[in-house]
Amino acid sequence: MGAFILRRIFQGFLVVLGVTIVVFVATRLVGDPAKVMLPLSATDEQRAAFEHKFGLDRPIADQFVTFVGDLATFDFGESMWQRRPAMDVVAGRLPNTLKLIAAGLGLAIILALPLGAIAAIRPGGIADRITVFGGLFGLSLPQFWLGLLLIMLVAVKWRLLPTSGYGGWQYFILPAITLAVPATARLMMLVRSSVIDELNQQYVRTARAKGLRFSQVLFGHALRNAMVPFITLAGWEFISALAGYTVVVETVFAWPGLGLTAMQAIRHSDLFLLQAIVFTVAIGIVLVNITLDVIYKLIDPRIKLA
């Protein structure tokens, strides 16, 4: 297990290196950073000074070596917009995003497991139909629209919760629900179909023949065995939230997290900050994948780690 984790960390390191190369190429070679980051009114001298300050006038290979060297020390340079090191900005915002994902995805998992399992008891039955309809409904709601709707109704009209921003638990509810709705729908549909599959397996018949209570058969055997696909999708949800959905939700709710920061970095043409965010997300994705592999092995002893 230890050797496996080390090997995966090494592979993850290669992935992150690959991502940095892509980021480097996309920012230095495809576009001109000086043009992107400086206002249109900047003079040629200002442009040259800018390029010199950030080493953009040096040969590209040289720049790459410096870039990678800086990465190794998590030095992404100065955020133009915030006027402080880009990594400091990321470090300040990342926990907020992680908390939001934890709340949203936690809610989705808590709802999806029992709902999906109950729907699977009798496919085509009334509980199943309600679940499938609810699932399709949840999948069809655009997240930005759902967020705005919740703000309008719950925060503005009924004045039950704050409209946006960051603070105590009240501030978590609406963004977490917005993040959770489509994720719950996807996870629930998956739990439903995997548990239906598992309930048709021979070992479930054995469990019933042993005289176990139905709840034991459903939750102790069928649902437990449906965990491998579930964990895969839950991991995917985490990654998609980190790399995308939080951008929408955080923007709608003015949530001071990484997603909102990414939007602001783009709006302020803050290339160095954006690089730091992309790099952080890439590391996050690699870490989630390693964690998933370890969880698979813990759930299913037949899985060989290689």
Partner: peptide, 29 residues
């Protein structure tokens, strides 16, 4: 069921839960 009357199935390959130890599956009864 499982106490006074019990059943052995045809295919032992698929009749046991692959994710639980055999000891745990016997202990369950």
């Amino acid at each position: 069921r499982g106490k006074e009357v019990s059943l052995i199935f045809q295919d032992p390959m698929t009749s046991l839960n692959p994710l639980l130890t055999v000891g745990a599956q016997i202990a369950e009864v």
